[in-house]
């Protein structure tokens, strides 16, 4: 206990005022003042407000707590850029209220998910993530496809945010399910920055022929990678699903280097690139496995 008879600690009102001022100094410098600087309000030139369907999807993303497991910000670090793509820019988020950068990557970052997969991939993956990644811990979102979007509510949200929408947007909304909306949101995330892979392979960067050709262990290794990464789209037995049948593909006797480059670079909008995540050896083993399907 203070023995000072008339110290600050015997004057409650004064004490409260001094405490308030003390906590406001850091608040003003780091939070309030920056609000009035241009650096806090950047906007990419080609960034568009969310459409009604995308906003409905974003509302679902928020309601389901997706942000608990998925970040939406790629750090300017080598490994992040290799895994996810171009690092996040401040101007991408001008319409994000709130920001959805998250704080935990139980699942992968989604900042560059837009355009990475075709719509059908998302539809099947939300229904059953384990069909794509057997050991995935993502919940199945089976109810989304049965629930209609609340169209009047979504349009009220658009108005509150001041986002423009046309009549046909409103009619399209009326027949959409929550799954349609969530997929539409997935596909727009991060698309105001051009898609860019950290590693893009051309023929000059790889061997002219598969260095693992004829090795049984390469086929086995390739098959394991196929099951973990490819089977969701191309089928457990390479029969095809969202993506082409790989047995049919193999029967066409494609050049090893063409197969390698397709796996490495992906196909825009249809198939993700794997060059950043699979070493040369791993990709060549996948090529060996594909060749074994002839």
């Amino acid at each position: 206990m203070s023995n000072h008879e008339n110290s600050l600690y015997s004057k409650a009102v004064l004490f409260a005022v001094v405490a308030a001022v003390t906590v406001l100094i850091g608040t003003i410098v780091t939070v309030f003042a920056p609000m009035f600087t241009a650096g806090m309000h950047p906007k990419n030139e080609n960034l568009q407000p969310f459409t009604a369907l995308q906003l409905a999807g974003r509302d679902i993303y928020q309601a389901e707590g997706c942000v608990n497991c998925h970040t939406q910000t790629v750090r300017p670090l080598k490994a992040d850029v290799l895994r996810y793509g171009e690092y996040s820019k401040a101007g991408e988020f001008a319409y994000d209220r709130p920001f959805l950068w998250g704080s935990k990557r139980t699942g992968p970052d989604l900042a560059r998910i837009g355009g990475k997969y075709p719509d059908e991939w998302h539809i099947q993956h939300f229904e059953n993530p384990q069909a794509f990644f057997p050991k995935s811990n993502m919940p199945k979102y089976t109810w989304l496809k049965n629930k209609p979007v609340n169209a009047p509510e979504t349009l009220a949200h658009m108005k509150a945010l001041g986002f423009p929408y046309a009549e046909e947007d409103a009619t399209a909304l009326a027949s959409a399910t929550q799954l349609d909306a969530l997929v539409a949101y997935m596909q727009v995330i991060g698309t105001s920055v051009a898609r860019k892979e950290a590693i893009v392979v051309d023929a000059s960067m790889i061997e002219a022929a598969n260095p693992l050709a004829g090795k049984a262990e390469a086929v086995a290794a390739g098959q394991a990678i196929y099951k973990a990464e490819c089977a969701g789209c191309h089928g457990q037995n390479a029969e095809g699903n969202i993506g082409a049948s790989i047995s049919d593909y193999a029967k066409g006797e494609p050049a090893d280097t063409d197969t390698y480059i397709t796996v490495a670079n992906g196909l825009e909008g249809a198939m993700p690139a794997f060059a950043g995540q699979l070493s040369k050896d791993k990709i060549w083993s996948v090529v060996s496995y594909i060749n074994s399907l002839k």
């Binding site: 920056p34 609000m35 001008a94 319409y95 209220r97 709130p98 920001f99 509150a160 945010l161």
Partner: peptide, 9 residues
């Protein structure tokens, strides 16, 4: 919706 957007949010 948050009064603040993007980096400010």
């Amino acid at each position: 919706y948050h009064l603040f957007a993007g980096v400010n949010s």
